[in-house]
Design a protein around this nucleic acid. Structure first.
Lengths: 205, 205
DNA sequence: AAACTAACCGACCAGCTGGTCGGTTTAAGT
DNA sequence: ACTTAAACCGACCAGCTGGTCGGTTAGTTT
């Protein structure tokens, strides 16, 4: 069983460090050696575990990013009765800077989407599918909100979902350490205004 | 005078084609030869006009992107009495796909900002400064809207500006040919809801 | 303990990239 | 006509990149 353990540990280290370095320096701007040096691993070790750099990245996405999206943006949606409250809370948490040395500002889907857009169709569509999952969950929970009387009946739920996603993605573009605190506050504040405008009664404090 | 003309023409071609190729393939993913081949120019010609690839890109930004931001997003702000109407109209135009063979979807600041973020501090901050110009103009026009009675008095203009910029940037991340028409419509629709929520009276149709 | 093989090593390679440089063409000045 | 220099050419280079491959180490099995 020692064998299997070693394998898992190495894979895990490659995933974790890979995600961090890819996100800070960008996929195309990061060489395998950058990562391997930091892990004290060799080329041989790498190509034993993955068949290419691309394969490696996709593996990271499947194992870490998908997970984060679910944990931060999908699962919290059903934890409150009022969907607008649930969405607000999830976004606030997702924009939270990581604790101390952890990766800052939740997850990094948007940066990767823009990096791969038009440069690598496969990875690009793969990443967009993740957004799609978020979207359908948003729409679903918004529609429930309609029947439960939290959201005005004339509202276009797909449109609202799109709008929320767009504003969130854009927000993450703007957030880069400096004055992040203030930006986040401003964003959530305005989002509340918006939510009030689509809500049945004024329930979003 | 023939000399000066030639110079200007070559520079102009380098700028135009460079912007297009950099945007479609990404700065780091575009080699100088990609551009030079398309223009039937040599390395020598290039390095006669610019001192580096970076210098080249900055020159493009100064000559073309800054211009586009002003023309599409800043100048239209003062062309209507109600700032919210003016903003809506400018965003609608800025999200318009280019005519036929021209570059699609207005300008491309966001893609470049994400590409250079954390990879090239100088260019990155340069690009963010352009956004800053847009922001201050938005804030200014919003504040006027307050005194003119178009916007509710308790509204935080800086927050509104940030929010508009974020949603616009995010929207452009989502727009990549497929179903662009629908996305754009959804976005503008929800933006109107939001504008109604911060407007003094319900004036945004 | 011998045989097997998962896990890893690291020298090496071909291809591409930004950048250099000595030379050539051609318009402008005298 | 002759000189000067702006504008351009294209062969060349060093450095880096993703990827290969023959070999080594060490856990597992028999």
């Amino acid at each position: 069983m020692e064998r299997n353990l070693k394998r898992r540990e190495t894979m895990h280290r490659l995933h974790a460090v890979g995600l961090e370095v890819f996100h800070t320096k960008g996929y195309y701007n990061t060489s395998l050696d950058d990562i391997l040096t930091e892990l004290s691993l060799s080329k041989g070790a790498f190509y034993y575990h993955f068949k290419s750099k691309e394969d490696y990245f996709i593996s990271i996405v499947q194992n870490l990013i998908v997970q984060k999206v679910y944990a931060l943006l999908v699962e919290p949606l059903n934890e409150q009765e009022n969907p607008l409250h649930a969405i607000l809370d999830s976004l606030e948490k997702a924009l939270e800077p990581g604790k101390s040395n952890e990766m800052a500002y939740g997850f990094m889907l948007n940066d990767f989407i823009t990096e791969f857009n038009k440069r690598n169709a496969e990875i690009s569509s793969y990443l967009k599918d993740i957004l799609k999952v978020w979207e359908v969950n948003l729409v679903s929970v918004l529609k429930n909100g309609k029947t439960d009387g939290h959201i005005a009946r004339h509202i276009d739920c797909e449109g609202v979902a799109t709008y929320i996603i767009a504003s969130y993605l854009g927000m993450r573009s703007l957030l880069s350490e400096t004055n992040g605190r203030q930006l986040k506050y401003q964003y959530l504040q305005q989002l509340k205004h918006y939510f009030n405008s689509i809500s049945e009664r004024q329930t979003v404090a």
